[in-house]
Design a protein around this nucleic acid. Structure first.
Lengths: 202, 202
DNA sequence: GGAATAGTGTCTCTAAGACATTATTTG
DNA sequence: CAAATAATGTCTTAGAGACACTATTCC
C-alpha cells in the first residue's frame, strides 16, 4: 500500500499492474468499455506462523472479470499467469500439505472460490463474469462453471428472465454458427436476487 | 495484537478483557457452560483518512452472544458499555456527519448489523444469540429483533422445527407465567439452512 | 372461567424441478 | 434436410404466507 491509498485502491492498482485488469467500484455496474473487473475485499489473514520468515498480515481481495488479458511480468509477481482454480485446489491424495501454492494461499483461494459460489446465488454478480452484452446461455455457463454443475437451460432461462431487474434486453441478437440467434442482454440495476438462485444440492 | 497471536485470538482476548465474553471457535457449537460468544471476522478498514491523527488499519470482528455481562472498565476502552445499535445508527435528520461514534465506526457497525441480518437467513447462527437451551419463541424473538420485523409464530414454528438439524429437542419444558409451557431445544448440528429463512420484503 | 402463551392444521399461491415442443439459424 | 442452439409451454411438487383452532399453564 502507498501512503495515500485505501485498501481497495491498492488492490486495484496491484491487479492492474500485474494483469492489466481495471477494477471498477463495487456497487457500480461494469463500465460500457468492457474489461472492468468487480473487486471486493475477501478477508484478512494474520496467523503469526502463516509465513515462517516474518510476520505478514494480508488483506485478500477477490476480482471477477470476463476477459483475461495476458498477465504482465514485472512488479511484485514475476511469474504471474492465469490458471484454473482446480490446479491449486485439488485434494492431495497423499494427505501431505505440500501443495503448489505457498503458505496459506490455497486456503485463501478456497475462501475466494466459496465466496464467488455463494455470492452469485443471492446477487446478480454472475454478470461480472460476462462482457457488457451477453446471452442467457453465456450467463448459464458462468453459473455452471462457478458451481461445477449442469443446469437445465429451460428452467434457467425462465428464472433469470423472470427476475425483475436482473437482465435488460438490448434488442440485439448474436450471429452464431449453426443455431438460432440468441437475444443479447446487459446487467440490470438489481444487485440482490429475490428469490435467490440456489445451487442444486449434491 | 501480540506477537504470537492470530487475528481471531487477539479479537477474542480484547473482547474478553473489555466485556467478559468468552468466544469459542467458529464452526463449533456454543459450549455447554453457556456464555460462549460466536466470533467472526467482519472486514478490514484502511482508508488513509479514516483516522485524521494517523494511519490506522483496523480488522473489525463481529461477536454474537446471548448474555451480556457487565463490561469491565480498564484496558483500551475505559468507557465500554452495552447499547442498542439504533443508538448509533439513527439517520441524522440534519444530514451532517457528526454522529455519536468516532471516525468510520458507524459504518463498521452498520456493516456488522447487515452481516448479522444476512447470516441468520442462511445459517443457524441465530442460535448464537440464545442460551444453550431455548424455546422456539425465544429463537423467533431473536429473528424479530435482528431483522426488526414481526414474524408469524405459527409459520416460524413450522419452519424451524421442520428444518432437519436446526433444532434438537432436549425433552425439557419451561415453567412460565400464564401460558402453556414451551419445549426446550438446543442448536442442532446443521450450520447451513436449506432452504434458507428469507427475511420478508419491505 | 379468563388471560396468556404454545403448538397443530388447512388453504392458497409462488416458484422450482422435470420434461416436450417449437423456432431460427448454418451447412 | 439435418444439426445445432434458443426460446416457450406444461405438469408436478415443495414450501412460504395467511389464518383458525386446540392445548396447557397461571391468576
Amino acid at each position: 500500500m502507498r501512503a495515500d491509498e485505501d485498501l481497495a485502491t491498492a488492490a486495484a492498482r496491484e491487479l492492474a499492474e500485474e494483469t492489466g485488469l481495471r477494477a471498477h467500484d463495487p456497487g457500480e455496474p461494469a463500465p460500457e468499455s468492457g474489461n472492468g473487473a468487480h473487486l471486493e475485499q475477501l478477508g484478512t489473514y494474520g496467523d503469526p506462523k502463516r509465513d515462517p520468515r516474518m510476520r505478514v498480515v494480508s488483506v485478500a481481495h477477490l476480482a471477477l472479470a470476463p476477459d483475461l488479458p495476458a498477465p504482465k511480468a514485472g512488479g511484485d509477481a514475476n511469474s504471474a499467469r492465469w490458471a484454473p482454480v482446480e490446479t491449486f485446489l485439488e485434494q492431495d491424495p497423499e494427505g501431505d500439505q505440500t501443495g503448489p501454492l505457498a503458505f496459506d494461499h490455497a486456503q485463501i483461494l478456497a475462501d475466494g472460490v466459496e465466496r464467488a459460489r455463494s455470492k452469485i446465488e443471492y446477487s446478480s454478480l454472475a454478470t461480472a463474469f460476462c462482457p457488457p452484452e451477453f446471452t442467457v446461455g453465456e450467463l448459464r455457463r458462468v453459473y455452471e462453471a462457478v458451481w461445477g454443475v449442469a443446469l437445465d437451460p429451460r428452467n434457467f432461462h425462465r428464472k433469470v428472465t423472470g427476475t425483475p431487474g436482473f437482465l435488460v434486453p438490448t434488442g440485439g441478437t448474436t450471429t452464431r454458427q449453426g443455431g438460432r440467434p440468441a437475444q443479447l442482454f446487459r446487467a440490470g440495476g438489481a444487485t440482490l436476487l429475490n428469490p435467490p438462485m440456489l445451487r442444486p444440492e449434491v
